[in-house]
């Protein structure tokens, strides 16, 4: 999993019906010091993440194991809002 921040949202009315009712957020992977990494992901929000929050994002087929993603064409899901993290380097 990666640490990411919320960059924005995606609104799509014409989409695979299995994505109905799912919140699609744009997330930006970040480093431990908070600086941005390259790239972004469109990720299904399964925990109601807010804009200012840092989140945990799971990728690959494991994203389908998140609540409600069982048979969905999804390879990225937000599975947790980060309260805090600490590390020694």
């Amino acid at each position: 999993m990666i640490i990411a921040r919320i960059l924005g949202t995606v609104v799509s009315t014409q989409k695979d019906e299995r994505l109905e009712g799912k919140k699609l957020l744009i997330v930006k992977p970040i480093n431990l010091d908070g600086s941005d990494q390259s790239g972004y992901l469109v990720s299904v929000d399964t925990v109601g993440a807010g804009f200012h929050e840092k989140v945990i994002v799971v990728g690959g087929s494991s994203a389908r194991l998140a609540e409600g993603n069982k048979d969905c064409p999804v390879d990225s899901a937000i599975i947790g809002v980060i309260d805090s993290f600490d590390f020694v380097k």
Partner: peptide
């Protein structure tokens, strides 16, 4: 293992599980 992540609002299957930074 170089750190830990605390997340209370999370997928319920992850309740009681520990997130570590590796």
């Amino acid at each position: 293992v170089i750190g830990t992540v605390v997340s209370t609002v999370k997928n319920e299957a992850l309740e009681g599980r520990k997130f570590l930074i590796v």
